[in-house]
Amino acid sequence: MAALPAIRSDPTDALRAAVRRRWGETANVENVEQATLGGSNRTILFDVLQAGQRTRLVSREETFGGADKPFLPPDAQFQAMSLAHENGLDVPQPLFAYDSNDELGPGFVTTFAAGTALPRRVLADTAQHETILHQLAETLARLHAIDAEKFAFLDDLPESGDPIVAMRARIDSLGEPHPALELGLRWLELHPPPPRPRTVVHGDFRTGNFLIDNGNLTALLDWECCHLASPAEDLGWFCTRSWRFGRTNHHAGGIATRRQWLEAYHRAGGAAITEAEIRWWEIFGLIRWAMFNILQGHGHVQGRRSPAYAACGRNVALMEYDLLMTLAGDYD
Protein backbone atom coordinates (compact mmCIF):
# COMPACT_ATOMS: atom_id res chain seq x y z
CA MET A 1 0.00 0.00 0.00
CA ALA A 2 2.15 2.77 -1.36
CA ALA A 3 0.03 5.70 -0.18
CA LEU A 4 0.48 4.95 3.52
CA PRO A 5 2.84 6.65 5.96
CA ALA A 6 6.55 5.98 5.65
CA ILE A 7 7.00 2.86 7.75
CA ARG A 8 9.09 -0.17 6.84
CA SER A 9 7.13 -2.68 4.80
CA ASP A 10 8.84 -5.76 6.24
CA PRO A 11 9.56 -5.26 9.95
CA THR A 12 10.85 -8.82 10.59
CA ASP A 13 14.50 -7.79 11.12
CA ALA A 14 13.54 -4.95 13.43
CA LEU A 15 11.21 -7.18 15.43
CA ARG A 16 13.88 -9.87 15.78
CA ALA A 17 16.41 -7.31 17.01
CA ALA A 18 13.91 -5.87 19.50
CA VAL A 19 12.99 -9.32 20.83
CA ARG A 20 16.66 -10.41 21.15
CA ARG A 21 17.53 -7.24 23.09
CA ARG A 22 14.98 -8.31 25.72
CA TRP A 23 15.01 -12.09 25.67
CA GLY A 24 18.43 -13.08 24.42
CA GLU A 25 20.17 -14.02 21.18
CA THR A 26 18.51 -17.43 20.87
CA ALA A 27 15.06 -15.92 20.39
CA ASN A 28 13.73 -15.88 16.85
CA VAL A 29 10.81 -14.23 15.02
CA GLU A 30 8.52 -15.91 12.46
CA ASN A 31 5.13 -15.58 10.78
CA VAL A 32 5.08 -11.80 10.70
CA GLU A 33 1.72 -10.50 9.51
CA GLN A 34 0.31 -6.99 9.36
CA ALA A 35 -3.13 -7.15 10.96
CA THR A 36 -4.46 -3.65 10.50
CA LEU A 37 -3.41 -0.17 9.74
CA GLY A 38 -5.88 1.68 11.91
CA GLY A 39 -6.69 5.33 12.23
CA SER A 40 -3.80 5.98 14.59
CA ASN A 41 -1.67 2.85 14.69
CA ARG A 42 -0.15 -0.14 12.92
CA THR A 43 -0.68 -3.61 14.36
CA ILE A 44 1.66 -6.50 13.50
CA LEU A 45 1.25 -10.12 14.61
CA PHE A 46 4.32 -12.35 14.97
CA ASP A 47 5.63 -15.53 16.61
CA VAL A 48 8.55 -15.59 19.00
CA LEU A 49 10.47 -18.90 19.13
CA GLN A 50 12.57 -19.55 22.17
CA ALA A 51 13.72 -22.77 23.85
CA GLY A 52 11.43 -24.78 21.57
CA GLN A 53 8.41 -22.68 22.49
CA ARG A 54 6.35 -20.67 20.05
CA THR A 55 4.37 -17.68 21.35
CA ARG A 56 2.14 -15.42 19.25
CA LEU A 57 2.63 -11.72 20.10
CA VAL A 58 1.32 -8.39 18.90
CA SER A 59 3.22 -5.19 18.09
CA ARG A 60 1.41 -1.87 18.07
CA GLU A 61 3.00 1.27 16.73
CA GLU A 62 1.72 4.80 16.66
CA THR A 63 1.39 6.21 13.14
CA PHE A 64 -0.54 9.42 13.81
CA GLY A 65 0.60 10.85 17.12
CA GLY A 66 1.56 14.17 18.59
CA ALA A 67 0.36 16.33 21.45
CA ASP A 68 -2.36 17.91 19.31
CA LYS A 69 -3.99 14.53 18.52
CA PRO A 70 -6.74 12.98 20.67
CA PHE A 71 -4.74 9.75 21.02
CA LEU A 72 -2.68 8.69 24.01
CA PRO A 73 1.05 8.34 23.40
CA PRO A 74 2.09 4.66 23.42
CA ASP A 75 3.79 4.82 26.83
CA ALA A 76 0.53 5.96 28.43
CA GLN A 77 -1.42 3.26 26.56
CA PHE A 78 1.09 0.72 27.85
CA GLN A 79 0.59 1.97 31.40
CA ALA A 80 -3.22 1.97 31.13
CA MET A 81 -3.34 -1.53 29.64
CA SER A 82 -0.93 -2.80 32.31
CA LEU A 83 -3.22 -1.45 35.05
CA ALA A 84 -6.28 -2.96 33.38
CA HIS A 85 -4.50 -6.30 33.08
CA GLU A 86 -3.36 -6.23 36.73
CA ASN A 87 -6.96 -5.62 37.73
CA GLY A 88 -8.18 -8.74 35.99
CA LEU A 89 -9.65 -7.31 32.80
CA ASP A 90 -9.55 -9.24 29.54
CA VAL A 91 -6.90 -7.18 27.81
CA PRO A 92 -3.70 -8.19 26.00
CA GLN A 93 -0.87 -8.18 28.54
CA PRO A 94 1.73 -5.49 27.74
CA LEU A 95 5.20 -7.08 27.64
CA PHE A 96 7.64 -4.32 26.67
CA ALA A 97 7.67 -0.87 25.12
CA TYR A 98 9.97 0.06 22.25
CA ASP A 99 12.71 2.53 23.04
CA SER A 100 15.17 4.62 21.03
CA ASN A 101 17.42 1.57 20.43
CA ASP A 102 14.64 -0.17 18.50
CA GLU A 103 13.92 0.43 14.85
CA LEU A 104 10.22 0.23 15.63
CA GLY A 105 7.90 2.46 17.52
CA PRO A 106 6.90 4.47 19.34
CA GLY A 107 4.84 1.50 20.44
CA PHE A 108 4.86 -1.72 22.41
CA VAL A 109 4.45 -5.49 22.34
CA THR A 110 1.63 -7.43 24.01
CA THR A 111 0.41 -10.99 24.25
CA PHE A 112 -1.94 -12.19 21.51
CA ALA A 113 -5.65 -12.82 22.11
CA ALA A 114 -7.62 -15.00 19.70
CA GLY A 115 -10.88 -13.94 18.12
CA THR A 116 -12.47 -11.59 15.63
CA ALA A 117 -13.19 -7.89 16.08
CA LEU A 118 -14.97 -7.51 12.73
CA PRO A 119 -18.37 -5.94 13.50
CA ARG A 120 -20.25 -7.78 10.74
CA ARG A 121 -18.98 -11.11 12.02
CA VAL A 122 -19.62 -10.31 15.68
CA LEU A 123 -23.14 -9.11 14.92
CA ALA A 124 -24.07 -11.94 12.54
CA ASP A 125 -24.23 -14.61 15.25
CA THR A 126 -27.11 -13.27 17.34
CA ALA A 127 -27.27 -16.42 19.50
CA GLN A 128 -24.08 -15.32 21.26
CA HIS A 129 -25.17 -11.75 21.93
CA GLU A 130 -26.63 -12.26 25.41
CA THR A 131 -23.42 -13.83 26.69
CA ILE A 132 -21.30 -11.14 25.09
CA LEU A 133 -23.49 -8.39 26.52
CA HIS A 134 -22.94 -9.64 30.06
CA GLN A 135 -19.23 -10.12 29.55
CA LEU A 136 -18.91 -6.59 28.17
CA ALA A 137 -20.94 -5.19 31.08
CA GLU A 138 -18.76 -7.02 33.61
CA THR A 139 -15.56 -5.86 31.92
CA LEU A 140 -16.67 -2.25 31.88
CA ALA A 141 -18.01 -2.30 35.45
CA ARG A 142 -14.69 -3.75 36.62
CA LEU A 143 -12.69 -1.11 34.73
CA HIS A 144 -14.78 1.72 36.15
CA ALA A 145 -14.34 0.34 39.67
CA ILE A 146 -10.53 0.62 39.60
CA ASP A 147 -9.27 3.41 41.85
CA ALA A 148 -9.08 6.44 39.55
CA GLU A 149 -6.00 7.65 41.48
CA LYS A 150 -3.98 4.93 39.77
CA PHE A 151 -4.73 6.66 36.47
CA ALA A 152 -3.61 10.10 37.64
CA PHE A 153 -1.24 10.19 34.64
CA LEU A 154 -4.33 10.78 32.47
CA ASP A 155 -5.43 13.80 34.49
CA ASP A 156 -3.94 16.46 32.20
CA LEU A 157 -5.67 15.27 29.03
CA PRO A 158 -8.24 17.75 27.71
CA GLU A 159 -10.74 14.86 27.55
CA SER A 160 -10.29 14.32 31.30
CA GLY A 161 -11.76 17.80 31.85
CA ASP A 162 -15.08 19.26 30.69
CA PRO A 163 -16.05 17.19 27.60
CA ILE A 164 -17.73 20.12 25.81
CA VAL A 165 -14.73 22.41 26.32
CA ALA A 166 -12.39 19.65 25.12
CA MET A 167 -14.49 18.89 22.05
CA ARG A 168 -14.76 22.55 21.02
CA ALA A 169 -10.99 22.89 21.30
CA ARG A 170 -10.46 19.76 19.15
CA ILE A 171 -12.83 21.03 16.47
CA ASP A 172 -11.30 24.52 16.52
CA SER A 173 -7.82 23.05 16.07
CA LEU A 174 -8.91 21.46 12.78
CA GLY A 175 -9.72 24.78 11.11
CA GLU A 176 -13.06 23.97 9.46
CA PRO A 177 -16.39 25.35 10.72
CA HIS A 178 -19.20 22.84 11.41
CA PRO A 179 -22.46 24.57 12.40
CA ALA A 180 -24.25 21.21 12.84
CA LEU A 181 -21.69 20.09 15.42
CA GLU A 182 -21.93 23.48 17.17
CA LEU A 183 -25.68 23.03 17.36
CA GLY A 184 -25.15 19.63 18.97
CA LEU A 185 -22.61 20.99 21.45
CA ARG A 186 -24.87 23.91 22.35
CA TRP A 187 -27.76 21.48 22.96
CA LEU A 188 -25.52 19.39 25.22
CA GLU A 189 -24.48 22.51 27.10
CA LEU A 190 -28.12 23.51 27.69
CA HIS A 191 -29.17 20.00 28.82
CA PRO A 192 -26.35 18.83 31.12
CA PRO A 193 -26.44 15.31 32.60
CA PRO A 194 -26.25 14.82 36.39
CA PRO A 195 -22.68 15.19 37.66
CA ARG A 196 -20.83 11.95 38.45
CA PRO A 197 -17.49 11.19 40.06
CA ARG A 198 -14.83 10.61 37.43
CA THR A 199 -13.60 7.09 36.79
CA VAL A 200 -11.12 5.76 34.29
CA VAL A 201 -12.93 5.15 31.00
CA HIS A 202 -11.72 3.09 28.05
CA GLY A 203 -12.71 5.92 25.70
CA ASP A 204 -13.30 3.82 22.57
CA PHE A 205 -15.55 1.08 23.90
CA ARG A 206 -17.50 -0.09 20.85
CA THR A 207 -18.23 -3.03 18.57
CA GLY A 208 -15.05 -3.44 16.53
CA ASN A 209 -12.74 -2.83 19.48
CA PHE A 210 -13.19 -6.11 21.34
CA LEU A 211 -12.36 -9.66 20.30
CA ILE A 212 -14.91 -12.47 20.31
CA ASP A 213 -13.76 -16.09 20.12
CA ASN A 214 -16.27 -18.95 20.11
CA GLY A 215 -18.98 -16.72 21.52
CA ASN A 216 -16.85 -15.29 24.34
CA LEU A 217 -15.14 -11.97 24.93
CA THR A 218 -11.38 -12.53 24.87
CA ALA A 219 -9.95 -9.01 24.87
CA LEU A 220 -10.78 -5.34 25.04
CA LEU A 221 -8.51 -3.58 22.51
CA ASP A 222 -7.53 -0.06 21.39
CA TRP A 223 -6.76 1.88 24.55
CA GLU A 224 -5.50 5.05 22.84
CA CYS A 225 -8.50 7.14 23.96
CA CYS A 226 -8.38 6.12 27.64
CA HIS A 227 -9.06 9.08 29.99
CA LEU A 228 -10.89 10.11 33.17
CA ALA A 229 -14.59 10.89 32.83
CA SER A 230 -18.12 9.92 33.76
CA PRO A 231 -18.51 6.15 33.38
CA ALA A 232 -21.66 6.93 31.38
CA GLU A 233 -19.38 8.11 28.56
CA ASP A 234 -18.25 4.54 27.79
CA LEU A 235 -21.82 3.26 27.94
CA GLY A 236 -23.08 6.02 25.67
CA TRP A 237 -20.27 5.68 23.13
CA PHE A 238 -21.16 1.98 22.83
CA CYS A 239 -24.77 3.01 22.03
CA THR A 240 -23.81 5.72 19.52
CA ARG A 241 -25.66 5.07 16.28
CA SER A 242 -22.49 4.67 14.20
CA TRP A 243 -21.59 1.49 16.13
CA ARG A 244 -24.86 -0.32 15.52
CA PHE A 245 -23.74 -1.25 12.01
CA GLY A 246 -27.24 -1.15 10.59
CA ARG A 247 -28.94 -2.92 13.52
CA THR A 248 -30.33 0.43 14.64
CA ASN A 249 -32.87 -0.94 17.13
CA HIS A 250 -30.07 -2.66 19.00
CA HIS A 251 -28.72 0.58 20.43
CA ALA A 252 -25.88 -1.05 22.36
CA GLY A 253 -23.33 -1.79 19.66
CA GLY A 254 -25.86 -3.68 17.54
CA ILE A 255 -26.18 -6.45 20.15
CA ALA A 256 -28.81 -5.30 22.68
CA THR A 257 -31.25 -2.52 23.50
CA ARG A 258 -30.17 0.49 25.53
CA ARG A 259 -32.23 -0.75 28.47
CA GLN A 260 -30.78 -4.27 28.40
CA TRP A 261 -27.30 -2.79 28.29
CA LEU A 262 -27.85 -0.46 31.25
CA GLU A 263 -29.41 -3.27 33.28
CA ALA A 264 -26.54 -5.63 32.50
CA TYR A 265 -24.03 -2.97 33.55
CA HIS A 266 -25.87 -2.27 36.79
CA ARG A 267 -26.22 -5.99 37.58
CA ALA A 268 -22.47 -6.34 37.04
CA GLY A 269 -21.87 -3.80 39.80
CA GLY A 270 -21.80 -0.62 37.71
CA ALA A 271 -23.66 2.57 38.61
CA ALA A 272 -27.39 2.92 37.91
CA ILE A 273 -27.46 5.06 34.78
CA THR A 274 -30.63 6.27 33.06
CA GLU A 275 -31.48 6.10 29.39
CA ALA A 276 -31.70 9.90 29.28
CA GLU A 277 -28.11 10.17 30.50
CA ILE A 278 -26.92 7.66 27.91
CA ARG A 279 -28.65 9.61 25.16
CA TRP A 280 -26.66 12.71 26.15
CA TRP A 281 -23.46 10.73 25.61
CA GLU A 282 -24.75 9.28 22.34
CA ILE A 283 -25.23 12.81 21.01
CA PHE A 284 -21.77 13.65 22.28
CA GLY A 285 -20.58 10.46 20.57
CA LEU A 286 -21.94 11.47 17.17
CA ILE A 287 -20.11 14.80 17.49
CA ARG A 288 -16.99 12.97 18.56
CA TRP A 289 -17.12 10.52 15.65
CA ALA A 290 -17.61 13.47 13.29
CA MET A 291 -14.55 15.15 14.84
CA PHE A 292 -12.44 12.01 14.29
CA ASN A 293 -13.45 12.04 10.62
CA ILE A 294 -12.62 15.74 10.29
CA LEU A 295 -9.27 14.85 11.86
CA GLN A 296 -8.56 12.09 9.32
CA GLY A 297 -9.55 14.32 6.38
CA HIS A 298 -7.39 17.10 7.82
CA GLY A 299 -4.51 14.63 8.26
CA HIS A 300 -4.82 13.66 4.60
CA VAL A 301 -4.58 17.28 3.47
CA GLN A 302 -1.60 17.78 5.80
CA GLY A 303 0.30 14.96 4.13
CA ARG A 304 -0.71 11.66 5.73
CA ARG A 305 -2.34 10.64 2.50
CA SER A 306 -4.56 7.69 1.59
CA PRO A 307 -7.88 7.23 -0.24
CA ALA A 308 -9.61 6.10 2.97
CA TYR A 309 -8.47 9.16 4.93
CA ALA A 310 -9.41 11.40 1.99
CA ALA A 311 -12.96 10.01 2.03
CA CYS A 312 -13.34 10.73 5.76
CA GLY A 313 -13.67 14.49 5.24
CA ARG A 314 -16.90 14.22 3.22
CA ASN A 315 -18.24 11.48 5.53
CA VAL A 316 -18.55 14.03 8.32
CA ALA A 317 -21.88 15.07 6.78
CA LEU A 318 -23.26 11.57 7.53
CA MET A 319 -22.56 11.90 11.23
CA GLU A 320 -23.93 15.45 11.22
CA TYR A 321 -27.11 14.11 9.64
CA ASP A 322 -27.46 11.37 12.27
CA LEU A 323 -26.82 13.98 14.96
CA LEU A 324 -29.53 16.31 13.69
CA MET A 325 -32.01 13.46 13.19
CA THR A 326 -31.33 12.31 16.75
CA LEU A 327 -31.77 15.82 18.16
CA ALA A 328 -35.02 16.15 16.21
CA GLY A 329 -36.31 12.90 17.71
CA ASP A 330 -36.49 11.15 14.32
CA TYR A 331 -33.76 8.71 15.34
CA ASP A 332 -33.60 6.77 18.59
Binding site: R314, A317, L324
Partner: peptide, 14 residues
Amino acid sequence: AILQRTVARVALAK
Protein backbone atom coordinates in the same frame (compact mmCIF):
# COMPACT_ATOMS: atom_id res chain seq x y z
CA ALA B 1 -31.52 25.67 7.83
CA ILE B 2 -28.55 23.56 8.97
CA LEU B 3 -30.46 20.31 8.42
CA GLN B 4 -31.24 21.39 4.86
CA ARG B 5 -27.56 21.99 4.09
CA THR B 6 -26.62 18.73 5.77
CA VAL B 7 -29.16 16.78 3.71
CA ALA B 8 -27.70 18.34 0.56
CA ARG B 9 -24.19 17.29 1.61
CA VAL B 10 -25.24 13.72 2.43
CA ALA B 11 -27.07 13.51 -0.90
CA LEU B 12 -23.67 14.06 -2.53
CA ALA B 13 -21.51 12.01 -0.16
CA LYS B 14 -23.76 8.94 0.31
